[in-house]
């Protein structure tokens, strides 16, 4: 892939620029140079540049965690999307396909509506656990003594998502006005009010999935040949599938618990990278991580800037931008996909 080397420096630059924009843009405008100094000060405890104390405070406690959370969640979702599309051999699969998002949404809804005194952490924990349990149920449904069928996995994912949707509908019906508003906002996804411990948790998840996914890059390529072919190339396909699904459930589960449901990053980003560099997972995974991180951080800037000083949920922004973009992609490739 000699003609795609340019993409790495391009994406890296985009990532750095997006980060700087993300820490300077907001209700309190901080100049890019002051933002840069503030980030260095935060990271090294030096005192360089002229940063007002209140600016440093805003950057340390609001903008930096928010930016890092956006980057980490974007990178996790994009990589999980790429892996699910590879596992299902379908470029239109999405990280939520194994039921983790719908399960997490149900978990969050149960907590918000039935235990409103539980608070924010209870919502996150219950979303994560419900997402993981749902994925395992979906996986169990699709497994038989002869192996795990990808078609069954897809169908059980759809069925379990429908069930979770019905559960959320029922809870919505029971909810009071306050819970209803919380529930709706949670489902739209937001990075506002990012806490440092969520940032740390998501970064750990990012490190784990990136490490393991990249180790499986060749195996994922082989899987695209077909499951039987991958077995003949010496892979333990069922073990690989279980590993990838569990990693996706952990990655997406932690992301969803930290930010709510953010759509389209996991679907659009790998698709876009594949159009640029081809389907080789050795390149697809790291580049998807970078593009996913940059796009979600950019969408988050949009979420703050479009209706400033108020904010839009970032999930709304990714859907608003991602859906039409995806439709254009589909129209362009319609002849190929049929």
């Amino acid at each position: 892939m000699e003609n795609t080397r340019w993409l790495w420096p391009c994406l890296l630059t985009a990532l750095v620029v997006t980060c700087l924009m993300s820490v300077s843009i907001g209700p309190l405008q901080i100049s890019p140079s002051a933002s840069f100094s503030a980030v260095i000060n935060w990271a090294t405890h030096f005192e360089i540049g002229s940063v007002a104390p209140h600016e440093q405070l805003v950057i340390d406690n609001v903008r930096l965690p928010r930016t890092l959370l956006a980057l980490a969640v974007g990178a996790v979702l994009a990589q999980c999307g790429a892996v699910m599309q590879g596992l299902f051999r379908n470029p239109l699969a999405d990280p939520g396909i194994i039921g983790v998002s719908s399960g997490a949404a149900l978990g969050a809804a149960i907590c918000i509506v039935l235990f409103p005194q539980g608070g924010e952490y209870a919502v996150a924990v219950s979303a994560f656990l419900a997402g993981l349990v749902t994925t395992l149920v979906v996986y169990r449904l699709a497994s038989s003594p002869t192996g795990t069928s990808v078609v069954l996995l897809l169908l059980s994912g759809v069925a379990v998502a429908a069930l979770a949707g019905a559960g959320i509908g029922l809870l919505t019906y029971m909810a009071d006005d306050m819970a209803l508003r919380d529930l709706t906002l949670w489902q739209l996804g937001s990075i506002a009010g990012a806490q440092w411990h969520y940032v740390v948790l998501t970064l750990i998840a990012l490190a784990l999935v990136s490490w393991q996914f990249n180790r499986s890059a060749k195996a994922l390529n082989a899987l695209l040949l077909g499951e039987a072919e991958a077995r003949h190339l010496g892979l333990d396909v069922d073990k690989l599938k279980l590993k990838l699904i569990v990693l996706c459930a952990i990655g997406v589960g932690i992301s969803v618990a930290a930010t709510g449901i953010i759509g389209f990053i996991g679907l659009v980003v790998p698709h876009l990278v594949r159009m640029l560099v081809g389907p080789d997972h050795k390149q697809l995974l790291p580049l998807s991580a970078m593009l996913g991180a940059a796009l979600l951080a950019l969408a988050d800037i949009g979420a703050r800037a479009i209706v400033a000083p108020s904010e839009l949920p970032v999930g709304l922004v990714t859907a608003l931008l991602g859906a039409p973009f995806f439709i254009v992609l589909l129209l362009k490739q319609r002849s190929k996909l049929v």
Partner: peptide, 24 residues
């Protein structure tokens, strides 16, 4: 094993497909 039907639909280049033979 040479498969009867190759179901690969992702746009790998020819050399990349052959390269997968190196994996083991």
């Amino acid at each position: 094993v040479l498969p009867q039907h190759a179901s690969l639909t992702f746009p790998f280049k020819v050399e990349q497909v052959v390269e997968m033979g190196l994996y083991p």
